[in-house]
Design a protein around this nucleic acid. Structure first.
Length: 402
DNA sequence: AATCCGGGGCC
DNA sequence: GGCCCAGGATT
């Protein structure tokens, strides 16, 4: 006998105080309302959506390319952040063919600052797949959509429903929060297998006439009346159906177990300046975080809180066979937080001796081939760099201004 | 199933 | 400082 997730005593609220007129099936252990109420729920939700939906650039039409680009950008990224990136991306790569032909540097440049850079690399792989195997036309079958690189269950559902009017759910963190509150579901949304519960419920709830709008309405709800921190469930268009609202337990849902803390990593950044006032930049290699983006050399400290000027001098000499004039103290202490790492960076400014510049170039050619260069502060927009690199360069520019 | 992968916003 | 965000690939 399968345990019912939401409690029977809670459910009576539905029948006593709200618009629920029929109890429906138990789906993946969750008691939901029946088909009649479902119809009213869809009607109220979509009526609200028609009046209040956000005006977003990717909602201009149902072009699958635009929907696709927006969905990839929106993975783990907030709407406000995405809007400008989206408009620029469509300008630079107006078609799937343009995306397929781009250089990696151009891809990274367009994505610079958005994070999770494999998203855009995967998108190009998918674009090339579409050109080679789908005659340049975005596939319509959900299995084919999900087979594209970078497209998982959520994004496949979003594209299939929004661009192609297919009645499939699109379950992301937003949707899980909305549904968990709607039915008072106790399942831990951090546990991967529990996503299936929400997919089944989403499949049950979805409006077959307007699946794309239905899924987007859930998202808009999740960013407004059903937001994580400051929800206003009593004003929500679905308040009459919402079990946690009726029980006053909104903030108890969704249940989510904690993730681990980011690990501290300590670096010294080498700001090596040549005679022209340029700084040494190196392209990060394939195996590294932020791969193929450009960075000043980073030394990983062997112990926490290393400020040791002598360590910097020794490592610079060992790595590059030169002995620049190094400032005794770091210019700053920069913190940069990734999901799983917390970088602490101390930038050291050093000036190369004139007679050693040619020697250094030779060493760099040997060690890095084409993957290094001298860069003036004013030319930083020429190379793809991650945000942490901009922070380091800001410290450098501030120092030079003094 | 757990880990890796960015960056910004909010409290 | 902690958690969230229109997640997916890899192991």
């Amino acid at each position: 006998m399968k345990e019912i997730n939401n409690q029977a005593e809670d459910l009576t609220v539905w029948l006593n105080t709200s618009a629920i007129v029929d109890l429906g099936p138990i789906i993946a252990g969750v008691q939901v309302f029946g088909p009649e109420t479902r119809q009213a729920f869809q009607r109220d939700l979509l009526a609200w959506y028609d009046q209040e939906k956000r005006d977003l650039p990717w909602r201009e039409n149902q072009d699958p390319y635009r929907v696709w680009v927006s969905e990839i950008m929106l993975q783990q990224t907030q709407v406000d952040t995405v809007i400008n990136y989206f408009n620029n991306f469509m300008k630079v790569f107006p078609t799937i063919a343009d995306l397929a032909q781009a250089t990696e540097a151009d891809l990274l440049k367009v994505w610079q600052g958005l994070g999770y850079y494999s998203r855009v690399r995967n998108m190009q792989a998918a674009a090339r797949d579409i050109m080679a195997n789908h005659e340049g036309v975005f596939p319509t079958e959900i299995k084919a959509i999900k087979a594209l690189k970078g497209i998982g269950p959520y994004t496949a559902g979003a594209i299939a429903s929004i661009a192609f009017n297919q009645a499939v759910p699109a379950i992301d963190g937003n949707a899980m929060r909305v549904l968990a509150r709607l039915f008072a579901i106790d399942a831990d949304i951090a546990v991967a297998k529990n996503r299936k519960i929400f997919e089944e419920i989403g499949s049950y709830l979805i409006d077959y006439n307007r699946p794309g709008d239905f899924n987007q309405a859930i998202m808009d709800l999740g960013s407004s009346y059903c937001s994580y921190k400051n929800p206003q469930p009593e004003l929500s268009p679905i308040r009459a159906y919402n079990l946690s609202t009726l029980n006053g337990t909104t903030l108890a849902y969704p249940v989510k177990s904690k993730q681990k803390k980011a690990r501290d990593v300590y670096y010294q950044a080498l700001l090596i300046e040549n005679q022209q006032g340029q700084i040494l930049m190196i392209k990060r290699s394939d195996g590294q975080l932020l791969k193929n983006m450009w960075s000043v050399p980073l030394l990983e400290s062997r112990r926490d809180q290393v400020t040791d000027y002598q360590y910097v001098v020794a490592e610079t000499s060992a790595n590059y066979q030169v002995s620049p004039i190094v400032m005794k103290e770091p210019l700053a202490e920069i913190k940069h937080i990734f999901t799983h790492l917390k970088w602490h960076i101390r930038p050291f400014y050093m000036r190369l001796r004139p007679e050693e510049e040619a020697l250094l170039a030779k060493q760099l050619d040997k060690a890095y081939g084409n993957s290094w260069c001298w860069l003036a502060a004013s030319d930083m927009d020429q190379l793809p760099v991650a945000r942490v690199q901009e922070k380091i360069w800001q410290v450098y520019r501030d120092f030079k201004k003094q």
